[in-house]
């Protein structure tokens, strides 16, 4: 945590959402608190703080990680992508657009983490089965939707992306 006195700090360099940063982070500081408090990236959410619900998920070198239990110091030399980096200042991604058209957003607190998990899935598995999508979501809890509209949005986005890539 920033501000905690008497804590050793470590200097790291990393890329977050395509921007380079050099930061001195505390030994006990999590990636989540570094993103939220030092970089003002409030998209990754603070929820269970135990790595169990997935609301804090970001991509590190393309793979989903629970930023709430990952030491900020361990991200030296890494590339991190948060929900803010998906669309940047431009149009929503195909996945995000599918979330709009499938009404897959309710309270929205799990959404940033769910989007990161599914973004990674669609990168690795461009044409996933429904079972693939559900398995990928095993580390993220959505208490609102019962998952169906999220699953349908992901499958729809995959088809849209395949069509866009082949046309």
């Amino acid at each position: 945590m920033p501000g905690a006195a008497g804590e050793q700090s470590v200097s790291i360099r990393l890329i977050v959402n395509e921007r380079r940063h050099q930061l001195d982070v505390g030994a006990g500081e999590t990636l989540l608190s570094m993103l939220r408090e030092r970089l003002s990236l409030l998209g990754p959410k603070e929820a269970c703080c135990e790595g169990e619900c997935g609301a804090c998920t970001v991509l590190m070198d393309g793979a989903p990680v629970a930023s709430c239990i990952l030491a900020a110091g361990s991200t030296n030399g890494r590339t991190v992508l948060t929900v803010e980096g998906l669309a940047g200042t431009g149009e929503l991604t195909a996945l995000q657009q599918a979330f709009v058209s499938h009404a897959a957003v309710q309270c929205g607190y799990c959404t940033p983490g769910v989007l990161m998990v599914l973004t990674a899935l669609l990168e690795d598995t461009p044409d996933p089965s429904e079972a693939d999508v559900r398995r990928a979501l095993a580390g993220t809890i959505c208490r609102c939707t019962g998952y169906q509209q999220i699953v349908e949005a992901a499958l729809d986005a995959a088809q849209l992306m395949i069509r866009a890539a082949t046309s």
Partner: peptide, 15 residues
């Protein structure tokens, strides 16, 4: 579309 969908999907919605 919901009025809050875009902000929630971009991580911009302030909870």
């Amino acid at each position: 579309a919901r009025s809050d969908a875009d902000a929630k999907l971009r991580g911009e919605a302030v909870f």
